[in-house]
Each structure stands twice: as C-alpha cells, then as structure tokens.
C-alpha cells in the first residue's frame, strides 16, 4: 500500500533526525549532526536489503517516489521563503564574503576531484 512507502520514509527520517540530535547532544553542540544523512543511509540500506527478506512492492515504492518527485517543487517553495531581503541588506561585506566563498569553493571542486582520481589509479 502507498502508505507503507510513506511510513517507511517517515520512519527513516524520524530515526535519522533523532540520532543526529543525539550525536549533537553527546558532543555538546546545539545542532543536528547529519541527521538527514543518517536517514538517507538508513533508507538506502533498507532498499538494498529489499531483495532478500523484506519485499518492497511497486505500490509501496510509489509512496516514496511521489516525495522524490515533489523534491523540485519543494525546493521552489523553499526559494520563495528565503530571507533574500536580509541577505542583500547585509551590505557589501556580506556580499563580498558570499561571492568569494562560492567562487573559491567551486574552483576547489575539480582540484579535489582530480586528487581522488589520481589516488584511485
């Protein structure tokens, strides 16, 4: 049933966020440490187990795939609720820092990628 897929997704997210909060609490910082990443790993793990003992049928899958497909629309809504005004009124310092951080981080990607590839071969 579709709800099984949605419920499985919800289970993964709640479990992941819970562990993220727990890790944050244990190392003494007021932030969720990788909760969503843990939730993703959990879902990937369950989905790969699928073939052996637990069976995720196509209708169940459609409950997950619906939210997968809603990702871009949700990102559009997310863009529409950003505090763009505050970002721009942060003045030149905020803009300068933001621009440099983004440009230099982009430049670092091919560098790091090449480093990985040479190490592998």
């Amino acid at each position: 049933m579709v709800i099984y897929g949605v419920a499985l997704l919800s289970f993964c997210m709640i479990a992941g966020v819970f562990f993220g909060e727990l890790i944050g609490y244990l190392i003494g910082i007021d932030a969720n440490v990788g909760g969503i990443g843990i939730a993703m790993l959990l879902l990937i793990f369950i989905a790969n187990k699928n073939s052996k003992n637990i069976k995720i049928d196509n209708i169940t899958k459609s409950g997950i795939n619906f939210w997968n497909a809603m990702y871009i629309p949700i990102v559009v809504a997310m863009a529409a609720k950003q505090n763009v005004l505050a970002a721009i009124s942060g003045g030149w310092m905020a803009i300068t820092a933001g621009v440099f951080v983004v440009i230099l981080s982009f430049l670092a990607i091919p560098f790091l990628y090449k480093f990985v590839k040479t190490k592998e071969s």
Binding site: A47, W67, Y71, A77
Partner: peptide, 17 residues
C-alpha cells in the same frame, strides 16, 4: 511546504534508488 521539514523529507526520498 518550503520549510526544513518537507525539504528534508523530500531529500531523504531522493536517496531511494
């Protein structure tokens, strides 16, 4: 819809596959 809850829910869903 664009808040952290739905955003993260959809991000987790993208991990499927």
């Amino acid at each position: 819809l664009g808040g952290a809850m739905f955003r993260d829910f959809a991000i987790v869903a993208t991990a499927f596959g």
